[in-house]
Design a protein around this nucleic acid. Structure first.
Length: 556
RNA sequence: AGUCUUGUAGUGUAAUGGUACCACGUCAGAUUCUGGCUCUGAAAAUCUAGGUUCGAACCCUAGCAAGACUACCA
């Protein structure tokens, strides 16, 4: 596989390994989520990396659930994670669980005890923390550190047998209490938890800690390149130490910087808080950065993969502009989404010289980016139309290309119209616009030679269907909602969801299909929400179109 | 404070001792029956100070800055 993109640092390491014949040139990665929450766009980066590496180097990727903490993990999360990975377009070689290795990991622990490299400690959590010392002062040995191998073996067996209460004893590695790396100061390997595990049930009451499970699982699966995020850098020494002591398959750990995105929260804990405290409707609320929310909102797997490819892989902390994600989804949807007309903020336009009961059907191309416009659908046209309020201006500025007294615009797919008059209510709101049309200006057979600057969309009043439309904006109004010490909840954007209960849509949209994207011309990309029901259409706005006019207006 | 990691346009990310690349964003223009798409162009960067070298973003030294670590979570 070759391309012009330069290699990221992990690819360089892998290619170096392949050149050196390491692992016989084999590449095997894994994606190791803990099933304690939903996957988000940050996980997508890791998924694309791990699966992408394997694809690129003819290797394989395991999906391994890191389920060593029974108190937080649930089957519901396992299912959603599998769905999300599949939806993103990746196939795992094996579906595995760290909990499958509990017996083997237990035996590893016994091996270490027999080597005099692990001991049972009766100290309390507070005592252990206190013994650990600080980064500048070395730790002190626990009074139980020098127990005999026989006693440790017996005690550890009793721990497994359920002879002790939660927290009464732990198994610790015997390494180096003076190490500048706090993780090497006799880290805990096993703790007692009389808890029900989502897969092993009540078979175990002792569970291995991350550091004594993750690397061992990697090794059991003969993972060649175990890729994780930066915060695990200090764990690497421990990762290597266990593998070396156990003399098992030498998996190697590499760390890259996790994804951060502007106006977005990425920690599972805070996302859970948003859900639990009702700031959003659930994990798949389209304003959330979760994969399920992005899917519901109308993002495509291809756009997310493209995004992950463009952001790159490196070791420095980063915060990606959310506009890059928006660019990626627009780029994809522009090529694939069918064009349709919808009026979100309607005002009536009457064509005074158009016959009362006449109806014409125009061909509207489905997608101008496709050959032959991607086919067409019939768009009904009549004397009365809905247009957007913002497409009329009583006192138009000189750069305004739409409707205003005496101004002409093209009605998309139809005729050129000229504004003759308008009506206002007592509050000064425009209530009706009267236009004349140029019969010779019909789309496709325009004889008028008239060049109008603007084209606007519309929906025929008698043919209009109604739909609820949900417009989403960023959930937070500051770039880094978790950045300072303030509560992120103070930065929630009160305008993040705007519901239009009754927008007018062209009749063809009655046939809208779930999971398909539509471009509402000049308004953005939309997709059917799962709240839709027969006779009740609900659309989510995925993203707006790029809007240089809005920027122009803002400048004034 | 100790150890570790990282510093390149606004944001990302290349350049591996030899012309600072590319993308998003920004700005200007062309085109357009979507103020979309497309096309053209512009502004914009090597944390600082020394050193090595014909030549340093890259190597060395010393600073500075940011982040991580001090859970019976992962």
């Amino acid at each position: 596989m070759s391309e012009d993109r330069s290699l990221n640092f992990i690819e360089e390491i892998i290619e170096e390994d392949i050149r050196n014949g390491k692992n016989g040139g084999r590449v095997h990665t894994r994606f190791p989520p803990e099933p304690n929450g939903y996957l988000h766009i940050g996980h997508a980066k890791s998924i694309c990396l791990n699966f992408g590496l394997a694809q690129r180097y003819n290797g394989q990727t395991n999906l391994r659930f890191d389920d060593t903490n029974p108190e937080k993990e649930e089957t519901e999360y396992v299912e959603s994670i599998k769905e999300d990975v599949k939806w993103l377009g990746f196939n795992w070689a094996n579906e595995l669980y760290a909990s499958d290795y509990f017996e083997q990991i237990y035996q590893f622990a016994v091996t270490l005890i027999k080597k005099g490299k692990a001991y049972v400690d009766d100290s309390t959590p507070e005592e252990i923390a206190e013994q650990k010392g600080t980064p500048t002062e070395p730790g002190r040995p626990s009074p139980f550190r020098e127990r005999s191998i026989e006693e440790n073996l017996r005690l550890f067996e009793e721990m497994r047998a359920g002879n002790y209460q939660d927290g009464e004893k732990v198994l610790r590695a015997k390494i180096d209490l003076a190490s500048p790396n706090m993780h090497m100061r006799d880290p805990i390997m096993y703790r007692i938890r009389h808890a029900h595990h989502h897969r092993t049930g009540d078979a175990w009451c002792i569970y291995p800690m991350y550091d004594f499970a993750h690397g061992q699982s990697d090794s059991i699966e003969e993972i060649t390149h175990s890729v994780c995020t930066l915060e695990f850098i200090p764990h690497r020494a421990l990762y290597d130490w266990f593998i070396e002591q156990l003399e098992i398959f030498p998996s190697r750990q590499y760390e890259f910087a996790r994804l951060n995105m502007t106006y977005t929260l990425m920690s599972k804990r805070r996302l859970l808080q948003l859900v639990n405290e009702g700031f959003v409707s659930g994990w798949d609320d389209p304003r959330m950065p979760t994969i399920s929310a992005l899917r519901r909102r109308g993002f495509t797997p291809a756009s997310i993969r493209e995004f992950c490819d463009r952001i790159g892989i490196a070791k420095r902390e980063n915060i990606i502009d959310v506009s890059l994600l928006e660019f990626c989804v627009r780029e994809d949807l522009n090529k694939t989404a069918w064009r349709r007309q919808a009026v979100l903020d309607p005002v009536k336009l009457v064509i005074t010289n158009y016959p009362e009961d006449q109806v014409e059907f125009f061909d509207g191309e489905n997608n101008p980016e496709e050959e032959n416009g991607g086919g067409t659908r019939a768009v009904p046209f009549s004397r009365e139309l809905w247009i957007e309020h913002e497409d009329f201006m009583e006192n138009p500025t000189k750069k305004y290309f739409r409707l205003g007294p005496g101004l002409m615009v093209r009605l998309k797919h139809a005729y050129i119209v000229k504004c003759e008059s308008f009506e206002k209510d007592e509050q000064g709101n425009i209530t009706e616009i009267h236009c004349s049309y140029l019969p010779e200006s019909k789309s496709g057979s325009d004889q008028t030679q008239i060049k109008v600057k603007g084209t606007i969309h519309w929906v025929s009043v008698p043919h209009a269907e109604k739909a609820e439309i949900r417009l989403y904006d960023r959930l937070f109004n500051v770039e880094d909602p978790a950045g300072d010490d303030s509560d992120f909840r103070e930065h929630i954007n009160p305008q993040s969801l705007q519901v239009i209960p009754e927008a007018y849509i062209e009749p063809d949209l009655k046939n809208a299909e779930a999971h398909k994207s539509y471009q509402f011309i000049r308004k953005g990309y939309f997709t059917l929400d799962k709240d839709s029901a027969p006779g009740k259409l609900v659309f989510n706005r995925t993203v707006t179109l790029k809007d240089t006019w809005a920027k122009e207006v803002k400048k004034q």
